[in-house]
Design a protein around this nucleic acid. Sequence first.
RNA 1: GUGGAUGUAGCUCAGUUGGUUAGAGCGCUUGAUUGUGGUUCAAGAGGUCGUCGGUUCGAGACCGAUCUUCCACCCCA
Length: 460
Amino acid sequence: MAQKPSIPKGTRDFSPLEVNRRNYIISTIKKHFQHFGFQPIETPSFENYDTLMGKYGEEGDRLIFKILNSGDFLKKVPDDVYQEKNSTQLTPKIVEKALRYDLTVPFARYVVQHQNELDFPFKRYQIQPVWRADRPQKGRFREFYQCDADVVGSTSLWQEVEFVQLYDAVFTSLGLKGTVIKINNRKILSGFAEVMGQPDKLIDFTVALDKLDKIGKEKVIEEMQSKGITPEAIHKLAPIFDLSGNFLEKITQLKQLLASSEVGLKGVEELAFIQKVIATMPLVTAQLDLDVTLARGLNYYTGAIFEVAAPKTVKLGSIGGGGRYDDLTGIFGLKGMSGVGISFGLDRIYLALEELDLFPKTQENATQLLFINFGEEEALYAAKALHKLREIGVNAELYPDNAKMKKQMNYANKRSIPFVVMVGTKEIAEETYTLKNMLTGTQETLKLTDLIGAVKQEVL
RNA sequence: GUGGAUGUAGCUCAGUUGGUUAGAGCGCUUGAUUGUGGUUCAAGAGGUCGUCGGUUCGAGACCGAUCUUCCACCCCA
């Protein structure tokens, strides 16, 4: 081999085991999406450059994979732009397509484009890969799947309630106990800025506040002051650094704190409603927690903000997130469409399940039975039983070559195939099959109907 | 995008201040065993030491660049 082939940075190959496990997670999520009335859509891997640019902030624009135009693309570039060597100016001249960066913006585009065919509120789910030109880290890749569910065209808080229940249903189903669904509301954060009397500092304030559990109260206050937030303002909001108690108690404290802010109180009310409904129908394994430091996606979220933390036993960040964005489709010209949605972090969930050993032991797709090949005539005889077994739903195969017994048995071992059937001249003469259990080592010789019965009992 | 670590056989890793032919364990192939796998024993295959360049009589080791993976920041799933 001249040089070992490789794959681009931040991309992965998946082995059969990994694909089976990923499919297990995806099919579980999909099942619950459907239970909650979401319908699947798919959108292209790449969109028009203009559709994506400017939607994710300056940082986002940099992380979008751009697709170079075909043909002699440099010919059309004006000389002055070419001479300048300014990438930001040159890029739009040589690029008109870009890889999907997330599923939300393509969804917004989809809704606007198909608005006349859709019945609102429109509930869709979408499970597809997205691409980001990020620097990879553990659990972070340049190509990864997002599993999103969104509702567009309804401002009802029942949607938020349902998403909390959906999270609970999926993680319960996966056996992932002790997840914490953290919820916040953008209106509460706006309320904080109002109470401070520095509404222009909203972003600086929340970005710093978001780091509370990471760097601690002192450092957060330090950062806020360095951003020009006055000590008086911070003092007014001091209670939020030590907010404690259960959901209801936090609500009570926030009501007092935000008494002077109309929008802030509105946010508190919204959370109170969600908590009230959830309280009447308790979650199975997840815990709902009010976390005012939650400040993800501030650029677009306008109401609820969600984030799901993995169980404390695994050191992983969030395994899901979401929120409400009034005017989801406004950027594409359709005003007044409120959207709310959540996302599942497939790769993080995979890591969590792996660490907690929660993947089902029996791999659905794996071969359950192997016919040993003793030669042409024997193979033909075996193939008839093989066909029958497949018909009743057994995953079975015939070793394709008349290889040494040892080799064939080894093959069954390596692939963890639990049963092996041997047919030689003796069995053909008796019209029987010898079924061997590879785990216990026991074997018995059976007629076809008994073989089918035995296999049925063991593997189905 | 900024800063730091890393790379030796399929995998996990040794390799002394630069010095003959680069090692181990596991895995792999073959045999002991022509209808019985996992255990055991024996033999064998497999490396231009990430890549390119430099220093040197001599580089796996030192220097530079580049790529990969990982970590922190930023951001995020």
